[in-house]
Simulated assay, not measured.
Amino acid sequence: MSVSWATADPPKAVPAGRPISSSSAWRAALLRQTIGIAGLAVLLVLWWGGTKLIAAPGSFLRHFSPLEAVTTLGRLATNSDLPIHVLVSLRRVLIGLGLALVIGVPIGLAVGRSALLNSATSPSFQFLRMISPLSWMPLAVMVLGVGDRPIYFLLAFAAVWPILLSTAEGVRQLQPAWLRLAASLSATRWETLRHVVLPGVLAHVLTGLRLAIGVVWIVLVPCEMLGVSAGLGYFILDTRDRLAYSELTAMVLVIGLLGFLLDAAARGLNRLVTHRH
């Protein structure tokens, strides 16, 4: 049975360079890590200088010093509901990303396969993609009510576009030889999809997932300021209402750290899949 998947011409072969020894690769990785830590140290020094040296005595900015933020963060981690708020936010992110994957991957496969479908949907997708997810907040609340459901919708809407477009691009870049081999073995459409197409586009899907994580993490905090009683966004509003400035700064650190860890996990998964392939 013949299988028709839209593909691009195979890329030209690139001559292989000299193999890199494990010790050289280790030294290069250590150098990159050292440079990254040095960059973070410079950022921390600039933060401290801005709040302690440049700000005048008694200035409002002195409430946001890094020392007070780190001290407060240690207290919040052990003597507050911060872990619960973190888990609630992570649960919302995972559900939003899951919905985006369920919607974006199948549509991306269909769009990448069919040039006609791509031409028909590309203007609409590009139009919707450029609308800020936060623009839908009032409509989401009116239709879905307050609580978690409008947050899931907004997060999924924000995450679906990078996943969909990356999946479609992955289908277009499939090696034609793989599809010809599947056709020569009389593979059915389902067999070709399962054993050729999905493994071939997996790296692109993970790249789209990493981009989606960055977008979702940015959208999450303002979404959680919308009629909920838990989450990082809610906790930030609570610290503002209580004028707890050191706690507010500590929450900014938590959001940045969690976002960094989520992105690192996505990068690690992408490298693992690429290495296995």
Rank of each mutant, 00 (worst) to 15 (best):
L193F: 05
L165M: 14
R189C: 01
A158V: 10
R194L: 12
A168H: 01
V171A: 09
A183Y: 05
A177K: 09
F157G: 10
L164H: 14
L181I: 06
L174G: 08
L193D: 00
V160P: 07
H195Q: 00
L185M: 15
E191S: 05
V197F: 00
H195S: 05
R172P: 02
E169T: 14
L174E: 04
L185H: 13
I163E: 06
L179V: 11
A168E: 03
L164C: 13
L164V: 08
A168G: 04
V196R: 02
P162V: 12
Q175L: 10
Q173P: 04
P162T: 10
V160E: 10
Q175C: 06
L185G: 03
A183P: 06
E169Y: 02
S186L: 02
A183I: 04
L174F: 08
L198E: 06
V196L: 07
V197A: 00
I163L: 07
R194T: 12
L164N: 09
T167Y: 11
A187Y: 11
L181N: 12
S184Y: 07
V160C: 12
S166N: 15
V160N: 12
A159V: 10
A177T: 08
T192W: 01
A168V: 00
A187R: 05
R189N: 07
L165N: 06
S166H: 13
A159S: 15
Q173S: 09
W178V: 09
E191V: 09
P199Y: 06
E169H: 07
Q173C: 03
H195Y: 10
S186R: 05
R194M: 04
T188A: 03
T188R: 11
V197S: 03
F157M: 14
W190H: 03
H195R: 01
H195G: 01
L181G: 14
V196K: 02
S184I: 05
V197W: 00
L198D: 08
W161T: 11
L185C: 13
L181F: 08
A158R: 14
L174Q: 07
T167C: 12
A183V: 05
Q173K: 14
R172Q: 13
Q175N: 13
S166I: 11
L179P: 04
S166M: 12
A168N: 00
P176G: 00
L198A: 10
E191L: 00
V171M: 13
P162W: 10
L174H: 07
E169W: 02
E169G: 12
P199H: 03
L174N: 11
A177L: 11
R194V: 01
V171R: 01
P199C: 01
V171N: 06
V197L: 06
L164Y: 15
Q175A: 08
Q173Y: 01
A168M: 04
V160T: 12
S186Y: 07
A182I: 08
E169Q: 14
A183Q: 14
R172A: 12
S166W: 05
P176Y: 06
P176W: 03
S184C: 14
E191D: 10
R180A: 13
L198V: 15
P176Q: 04
T167V: 06
A182M: 11
V196F: 00
T188W: 02
R194F: 02
P176K: 03
A183E: 15
T167P: 09
P176L: 09
L193I: 04
S186C: 07
T192E: 04
T188M: 08
L165G: 07
V171L: 08
H195A: 02
